[in-house]
Design a binder for these strands. Structure first.
Length: 167
DNA sequence: GCCAACGTTGGC
DNA sequence: GCCAACGTTGGC
């Protein structure tokens, strides 16, 4: 038991990908705000992934429904998951009448700006890289807004960002 | 704007 | 518990 909890603490950081529509909240908004609470996630699987996040985990920032769809930069997890206040705000579009104050249904992490890529790593770029075939974002029909990424995939994307910037 | 793919809801 | 209907996501 004690051994297991120690192992948990020293495990390597996780990597993630988070989607956002630039017309709602894009990398430019995060660069301006420096950090933000990632509120409004209303999907249980995506919520559960956020609950697995640790401070310092790195996040690929993805623009969906954009002129240029793809990964546009890197962010860091600034706080572990906490209660998403919008679930209790009847004025919010994310209000959830079924959420209980003593047992919140929805969580959010704080995310901090790290960098914006010089050029977008587009969906096509991602799809044409054989090292990324297993990325969840590339799987047919995937709509999850928060997904885990392997350390290898993360490194490949960072390398891609450098190479597309030189084109 | 289209539409495939998916998650959720609610009747039974 | 099943599943049709519905709403949403997101690439194109």
């Amino acid at each position: 038991m004690a051994k297991n909890s120690i192992v948990q603490k020293i495990e390597t950081p996780h990597h993630w990908l988070m989607k956002s529509e630039p017309s709602v909240y894009g990398i430019a908004d995060l660069a301006r705000d420096r950090h933000t609470l990632w509120e409004g996630v209303r999907n249980y699987q995506a919520r559960n992934f956020m609950r697995e996040m640790s401070v310092g985990d790195r996040v690929l920032f993805y623009h969906s429904n954009a002129d240029v769809v793809g990964i546009v930069g890197v962010a860091r997890v600034r706080s572990a998951a906490k209660e998403d206040p919008t679930q209790f705000d009847s004025q919010s579009e994310y209000f959830d009448a079924g959420a209980k104050k003593d047992d919140p249904r929805w969580s959010a992490v704080e995310v901090e700006f790290e960098s914006k890529f010089a050029a977008v790593v587009t969906l096509d770029d991602l799809r044409s890289d054989r090292a990324l075939v297993s990325m969840m974002i590339l799987r047919k029909g995937n709509r999850l807004s928060v997904t885990p990424v392997t350390a290898g995939e993360f490194a490949v994307v960072i390398a891609l960002a450098r190479s597309v910037a030189k084109k």
